[in-house]
Design a binder for these strands. Structure first.
Lengths: 195, 195
DNA sequence: GGCATCATTGAACGATGGTTCAAACCTTGA
DNA sequence: TCAAGGTTTGAACCATCGTTCAATGATGCC
């Protein structure tokens, strides 16, 4: 039964993501991941080749979700600012709601060269998509002239940094934070401001 | 001779910072740090109690530099926007120029509870200083109304994220990047824009 | 010059981490 | 019911890591 195996694999990835998120990749132990996923340490190797492969699939899954969100949010209507804001909100939600797999996508260093190359390529594709949106806004005159690459990376930094301080049990929900953040980040680009 | 000992300690901290930066705290080995600092592994323990203490002093040194930059840049003249921009540039320069010790100030998790408490307290003091500047700008009407804490953390994220992508051998110098970044981050706060 | 203090070394220790493996367990289909 | 193949286990292996330590080398003071 293929379904059962894939479902179990996903459970393990989510468990591993939770551990990676709170301990970091290097500090997380296979025994710890196994305990979180309710199986024995040795059994992990029935589902994955090793720790590096678990991290790889965590990151791959997270990037797929983000790329999908990028396509979805970018395709909908509105001016460049509105489209960009939707993408940023989607990105933040990906990280904050779906806490599990996503946080690990920051730790590219832990991968073997071949796996890392694939992740980096996919990540670059995502960043390029975002930058294109910024560049289009600049070209159209809606955004003020500036270095699109730099601004894109600044946005990504502000968004990814949220995993360091956001507390799901705090006073504000993830969506509120995501929307406020997006509003601020887009405002830095707009020529004139609107209420 | 006290001078000689302190100088050697600083050399070791800078070497350790370089290693932490490229490998991360958990991945960095004492043997590796020793090699980078040109001494034997065992000799490290003549200068520091252990790995956790090395990380502690790296972070402490970085935070001291940033707090000093905050005081200096905040005290000089100009409106809130200009003062804030100067602080942000100083922060980025601290990270990008002084590459060595600074990148490690992101890895608070690697510290023992007592040392971590001291670092976190100092880091919070820094963040509070920045937030006060943002809040003052909002109160004065120079910045638009928004959540000062959120915006402050967004700025810190954008700045700290630079260690992931900035390449000193790239086409742009650290100061250029720092200034562009600061301009964008402050623009998101200003009510109206100026040339 | 000789002594005391500091600096330095490299090998060794204990712990921990990722990984392997042979054996047991469970499920399934005939 | 029985065999077969997929699952699961927990102990053991091996490498590595932070750390210790006894011994050696350098340095400064009288």
């Amino acid at each position: 039964m293929r379904r059962r195996l894939d479902a179990r694999r996903l459970e393990i990835l989510r468990a591993a993501g939770r551990i990676f998120r709170q301990r970091g990749f290097a500090e997380a132990g296979m025994r710890e991941i196994a305990a979180e996923a309710d199986l024995s340490p040795g059994n992990l190797y029935h589902y994955f080749e090793g720790k590096h492969e678990i991290l790889y699939f965590c990151q791959d899954r997270a990037l797929d979700a983000m790329l999908a969100a990028l396509r979805r949010a970018g395709a909908a209507g509105g001016d460049h600012g509105e489209r960009l804001a939707r993408v940023l909100v989607a990105h933040a939600s990906c990280i904050l709601d779906d806490l599990e797999g996503t946080a690990a996508h920051l730790e590219v260093e832990g991968l073997a060269p071949d796996l890392r190359a694939r992740i980096v390529a996919k990540r670059d594709r995502y960043e390029r998509g975002l930058r294109r949106l910024v560049a289009a806004g600049i070209r159209s005159g809606e955004f003020r002239a500036c270095d699109a690459g730099l601004v894109t990376r600044a946005m990504l930094g502000a968004l990814n940094w949220t995993v360091r301080w956001f507390d799901p049990r705090g006073p504000r929900t993830a969506s509120e934070v995501a929307e406020d953040l997006a509003r601020y980040l887009v405002a830095g680009l707009r020529r004139s401001e609107d209420a």
